[in-house]
Design a protein around this nucleic acid. Structure first.
Lengths: 344, 344
DNA sequence: TTGAAAGCGCTACCAG
DNA sequence: CTGGTAGCGCTTTCAA
């Protein structure tokens, strides 16, 4: 609870020098800085947040709006919240929570009361009410996800279409001619913004590569293991040998269980790739290649964009897509083996 | 972005009168107040958060520390975060997120920088590092959960022991002589603070009521449906006719599935009560009586205690237990029927 | 019932 | 490279 003037006195310098030494906004002699830092340490000094907000141009707080929708996958959501918090702290920012019933009124409130410097929008819906708000308030807003109407907004997301395309490429390169995809529950293709993009990438690119392709959801609203195994069976019966999964951990397990029950092994009989997964795939019955959705990457970029929006030349509006990365764990027929198989 | 002096001018009063009219800390003539309120509305005035923090004695922010532990049940955790946020907003407070890697350093930081007025501690572990911190910092801290060492702390929680005792009473009153409990995974009895309390309430009270009783976990670390069904089977084979469940939704389903597969119906053959559940039990195969853990109740109380800790006479340290409430859905043999059964 | 004015603790401008 | 100081926009004491 020491104040800046005590630090100044202890270090034998002026208040402003202490301020500049701490913010780094003005050069300070090495020895002066050393004395100040020692005084700070000895007094356990921390600038008062309110004073900093009032005097400075920054509050050092970002709002994080998260609607707690029913179809939200809780573990994934938590991973994003954690990632956002870590990203923010890396730039000396804190996260203020704005939950559903407050998401709209709250965004306006924290913006016009000057409580936060910017807003991060999580769990974006195709028709998201927060889009209109982002256009009204006068602080930068970054969407982690892409709403249908994103004109003039800054959005960050994994390039889902490129991710599925990449997966399709791997399967095609592995000489698979008939591929399938097991997606989310049917309702997710209406309520969420990215499942349709994964599906589109799969279907468009499979068509481009001239592959026969089939798509299955995991049920109407909630996916049950039996529905998943049924869907898997249907795909296999249709001659599918390459499988693309965009689903929860449980679905992955169910798919692998169905394969096992048919005495099919990965990748000998069936190749499997997981797309946009946020969980650990190494503890599954069989390790599976994946093109992960990494919350930290999205959130780091989002925070970076929010911070840059506060500066002199802010980043332009638009969709900032994150390039997919492929993690090989041996669950796909390698091109080499495929060539041999064809040759023999 | 209007400021208080603009409001004052528009309403034809002084700045201080505006301030008092809004805070209610001093009587203001009805017509004066009306003019001020109109000016506030017309200008869409919101007090500047930084100025309010600096000048006033309150920041109107509570920190919420949440370690994202691996064994945390994500949906339950999210329910608590949401409830905490709602409770805080009801008292014009915002929630600042403090995540794991920051939980300790962060608590100290937000306390000594005057960013928050108090701290709410979520997902409390038996040996929680935040206990030591709570004792160091000079702002009120309220634990939602009870750590082993809780001397001098303010803790809020459901009275888990009373909850299981209540459940045991219902089963005993339903003329059950042999009862069983299916709890969480074995590891939860080491890492979490409340599973042991539920178990203790069950065993102690069953003993008091002179009932034969058996306890089962749902596996070592993670619970699988098959492990749950096996545990259920073992209890049934031991002659159990009354079942107490302290587990996730999936476990409830698995238990009901096992009963169904044995052609046992609820409550005719087996009575079932769920204790400390946070999810919706009405969509299960059979509706089940429960003694719920209601996040909103805990969080409302926690916020209330935190607020009162800021006042003149703060609440005393101690454990504030919330009395359990029983929700009847017909899954337990009523005392009446039991009497008849005995009579016939 | 109301007003005037002194800070709250910092940041950043203006001087040197 | 460093110091002095004018605010930032409120809350609250003192005075009327």
């Amino acid at each position: 609870m020491a104040k800046i003037d005590e630090v100044a006195r202890a270090a034998g310098v002026s208040i402003s020098t202490v301020s500049y030494a701490l913010s780094g906004k003005r050069p300070v002699a090495a020895d002066t800085r050393a004395r100040i830092e020692q005084a700070v340490r000895e007094l356990d000094y921390r600038p008062n947040a309110g004073a900093r907000m009032l005097a400075g141009s920054r509050t050092h707080i970002f709002a994080l709006t998260e609607p707690f929708r029913l179809d939200t996958h809780a573990p994934t959501h938590m991973a994003f919240v954690l990632a956002a918090s870590i990203a923010a702290r890396q730039s000396d920012y804190d996260i203020l929570l704005l939950t559903d019933e407050e998401a709209s009124a709250g965004m306006r409130r924290v913006a016009s009361s000057g409580l936060v410097d910017g807003v991060l929008v999580l769990d974006v819906a195709p028709a998201d009410e927060r889009v209109a708000l982002a256009r009204q308030i006068d602080i930068p807003t970054v969407f982690i996800g892409v709403p249908d109407d994103h004109d003039g907004l800054i959005c960050v997301d994994l390039d889902f279409e490129a991710a599925s395309a990449l997966a399709v490429d791997r399967l095609a390169d592995g000489a698979h001619r008939t591929i399938g995809m097991i997606g989310q529950s049917a309702i997710a293709y209406e309520n969420s913004n990215f499942p349709p993009r994964v599906r589109r990438g799969f279907e468009d690119h499979a068509r481009e590569r001239g592959l026969e392709h089939h798509f299955r959801t995991t049920g109407q609203v909630r996916s049950s293991a039996s529905a998943v195994r049924r869907a898997t069976g249907e795909l296999l019966d249709a001659g599918v040998t390459g499988l693309l999964l965009h689903a929860s951990e449980e679905v992955h397990s169910a798919v692998l269980a169905e394969l096992a029950s048919r005495d099919l092994s990965v990748p000998r009989d069936v190749s499997v790739i997981s797309v946009a997964s946020t969980f650990d795939l190494t503890s599954l019955a069989a390790p599976i290649d994946d093109i992960p959705l990494v919350p930290q990457t999205s959130c780091d970029l989002a925070v970076d964009l929010a911070l840059r929006s506060l500066e002199a030349d802010p980043p332009s509006a638009g969709i900032y897509l994150i390039a997919p990365t492929y993690r090989d764990r041996g669950s796909v027929t390698p091109p080499h083996a495929a060539v041999e198989a064809v040759a023999s």
